[in-house]
């Protein structure tokens, strides 16, 4: 396996985690995509120095964290919203609870399948059509608070379901 092939294999393996990490710190999906590409390029440039005894995901997040800290602008908070201290804490938290992305994706799909159609429709409005809470409230003719509470409860329920699925005995 040549170097480029090895790099791509490792990057694709942790792409979801890396995107989740960047997305938790950066506002706006376009900015997330741009920063992900920028970081992927930096990772490739640094790949010769990657210590293979360390998990690739943690190494990649470390470099991504530095990149994001460099983009931090306290006055604007855009596109990087969190302060460097907070970024470091998030990076550590991601490192401590890493689960293979494929298992997490499988658990999410399983838990989504358990939801009633109405709940899936609400999630689709938020995540497929990228509507804001306000736009969803308008579309459903509901109050902002009702939409916010429904989404919040749904995500808590999904999170519980995923955690149970990942920690269940016999889970892959």
């Amino acid at each position: 396996m040549d170097l480029q092939e090895e790099y791509l294999k490792l990057l694709f393996g942790c792409e979801l985690e890396l995107r989740a990490f960047i997305g938790s710190i950066v506002r706006g999906s376009h900015d997330c995509d741009d920063l992900f590409q920028e970081i992927a390029l930096t990772l490739w440039k640094e790949f010769a120095r990657y210590d293979r005894s360390r998990p690739f995901g943690a190494w990649a997040r470390g470099i991504a964290a530095v990149k994001l800290m460099q983009r931090w602008d306290q006055s604007k908070r855009l596109p990087v919203v969190l302060s460097p201290e907070a970024i470091q804490s998030v990076c550590n938290a991601f490192d401590q609870s890493e689960v293979p992305a494929s298992r997490r994706a499988e658990a999410l799909e399983h838990c989504l399948d358990q939801l009633p159609e109405k709940s899936r429709r609400l999630l689709a409005l938020r995540y497929e059509r990228s509507l804001t809470i306000e736009q969803i409230a308008q579309e459903l003719q509901a109050t902002l608070d009702a939409v916010y509470q429904s989404l919040s409860r749904l995500r808590a329920r999904l999170q519980d379901c995923i955690n149970r699925r990942l920690s269940a005995p016999g889970a892959r």
């Binding site: 979801l16 997305g23 994706a105 999410l108 989504l112 999630l123 938020r126 995540y127 497929e128 995500r155």
Partner: peptide
């Protein structure tokens, strides 16, 4: 954040 990204990716 992982769940948020997962839902975004899924939908």
């Amino acid at each position: 954040s992982r769940l948020h990204a997962g839902l975004e990716g899924y939908f």
